[in-house]
Design a protein around this nucleic acid. Structure first.
Lengths: 94, 94
DNA sequence: TTTCTTCATACCATATATGCTATAAAATGA
DNA sequence: TCATTTTATAGCATATATGGTATGAAGAAA
């Protein structure tokens, strides 16, 4: 069986994936989550864009960290990747 | 007088109703997280608004479910309530 | 080299989120 | 009841996110 962890290890060999996953600053956590959701779904930016009824450039913008996406966009991305969007405010001390 | 809003508030005390409600309306799950973060921080809408450098009416709009807030707004709310914002796309099958 | 694929980026028009003001409703306490 | 605080909502101006288009870079494979 292939777990997401194994897939992650495999994809970490991809320089772009590895850079996206490890080098991005904390404030780009959303961008990282977007990249991970798309890659785990096995989609290219163009394919994801089609499912979200938008364009490849918009997806690239999301993944670059230059965007502050709305929850509407995030929810559409969740539908397109077959995932559930989770948003929470967690305590810093527990 | 019994309004639908009052009925909703009453029924939201039922966990099953609450879950079904938020599952069908993702934007209200965000609204609920916002309300929870503010109340746990012990803040009024006005006090939270001041910390976020915005207005009470904007907070009310966030909590009403009528908004699709940007991640910028959510980040500022996390800072104002002393929490960490977590956004993730979780698998539906695990 | 060329071709193809994928991703990144710039620019602009438009849709939407946000801030602001005012007001009203609702809750809270006396 | 009354007074006060807190929250909800409407209208509007503006800031920002998004869609669309075009273009270019990097890599893979021939």
């Amino acid at each position: 069986m292939t777990t997401s962890r194994e897939l992650h290890r495999k994809w970490m060999k991809d320089p772009k994936y590895a850079k996206a996953y490890t080098d991005l600053a904390p404030e780009f956590a959303v961008a990282r989550a977007v990249i991970e959701a798309r890659v785990l779904a096995g989609l290219t930016q163009e394919e994801l864009a089609e499912r979200m009824d938008t364009t490849q450039s918009s997806i690239a913008r999301l993944e670059s960290g230059r965007a502050r996406p709305s929850t509407d966009t995030l929810e559409r991305l969740a539908v397109a990747t077959g995932t559930n969007l989770k948003i929470s405010f967690t305590s810093k001390h527990s």
